[in-house]
Design a protein around this nucleic acid. Structure first.
Lengths: 196, 196
DNA sequence: CTTAACTCGTATATTCCCGTACGAGATAAA
DNA sequence: TTTATCTCGTACGGGAATATACGAGTTAAG
């Protein structure tokens, strides 16, 4: 149902599209207003080949965002989100922190090129998953309830986005970035033990 | 020493410059790639007047960033940073969270138009103030030491920047934004009471 | 009042990027 | 092999933004 619109597409075209989308994901999440030409170069194809598959920049951005969100959905589906919310969050972040960070960056890149309605539509389902987990954690008294839920969701994105940024800047390493990001998120979400 | 380059400048010119810089600060911190024309309009002057005082876009961005950082410095100078680091941080954030958020946004706007060396140079001193406060808090056992100091400094910026963003988006209100931001920052920095 | 500084519009050059048009050559699929 | 698809270069047009050039009108400062 994703892209079975086939009048019949050749295998090499399929491959090109995959490379282009992958390139768009990396380029756009690093630099929100990356050039079409830069993305094509990153993908190893000519600019005109890219235009052959994506008529406009918005199409490309949407494809990149969709791909990232679908990857996130796929990962979320494999993670066990039941049981202790704290442990569930740890599992979730451990396996998908970079995807969430990437999605946040792409979301930023998509603002202004996609209609905001379409944007919310794409982002709604994965965001709801995280939100539900946090809400459950609040109900169980594991996560804090003294701050608005949407704010907490946003902060998770900010922290992960920042972790990816600091990794690129060389201030964090491949080895410690996940640990640092998870610890930071946990300290934001966890219910402080003795709150007046 | 700031701008006494004195061939002798008229009072109205001084006023125009002040309005332009103020407009640049607000416009650029809301929208990193705001147009020169938009900034001039916000300042209530013609585009050509702006060019009369700032030859290039980079000049303008640097002026805006410098002004914000100087305002931050001035505020920092009035805040009592001695005593309990936690309380000092509360005082600091209460009186300057929006300035820090603005500076972070301007810093983002400045990337790419200013040489990165110049950028670090401008940002170095105010960042050091915060860093010193956090370091002292770590030594006193008030702030956590299990995460790298530069990361903690960055997270403070991310959170404040996010708070400003959510305020603009209408997800936080003028009344609760400061409280929410401060509580979030505190929960990231505070030493967890029972750490194995 | 006189001068120099300032304001600011119009016009223009330049640059950058998007998107289209055209077409020749390479390649997968039948 | 035949055919439709795909690749991709060159070239062009349009739009937006930066920056310069010129100049006429306005205003602060001596």
């Amino acid at each position: 149902m994703v892209s079975q619109t086939r009048p019949r597409r050749r295998a090499d075209a399929e491959r090109s599209i995959a490379r282009i989308v992958a390139a768009a994901r990396t380029c756009l999440s690093e630099h929100p207003d990356a050039t079409i030409e830069a993305i094509a170069a990153e993908a190893g194809v000519g600019r005109m080949t890219l235009y052959g598959h994506f008529k406009t920049r918005a199409d490309l951005v949407e494809a990149a965002l969709s791909a990232a969100l679908e990857a996130g959905e796929a990962t979320l589906a494999t993670v066990d989100l039941s049981g202790d919310p704290g442990a569930a969050l740890d599992r979730l972040l451990a396996s998908s922190w970079s995807l969430v960070a990437e999605s946040a960056a792409l979301l930023e890149a998509a603002q202004g090129v996609l209609p905001s309605g379409r944007l919310r539509e794409l982002h709604a389902e994965p965001a709801k998953r995280v939100e539900d987990l946090l809400r459950r954690g609040q109900r169980d008294g594991v996560f804090r309830s003294d701050l608005p839920l949407p704010w907490l969701v946003s902060v998770v994105q900010y922290v992960l986005h920042g972790a990816a940024e600091q990794l690129r800047a060389g201030n964090l390493t491949e080895e410690n970035v996940a640990e640092v990001a998870v610890a930071t998120v946990r300290s934001v979400l966890d219910q402080p033990p003795a709150e007046s």
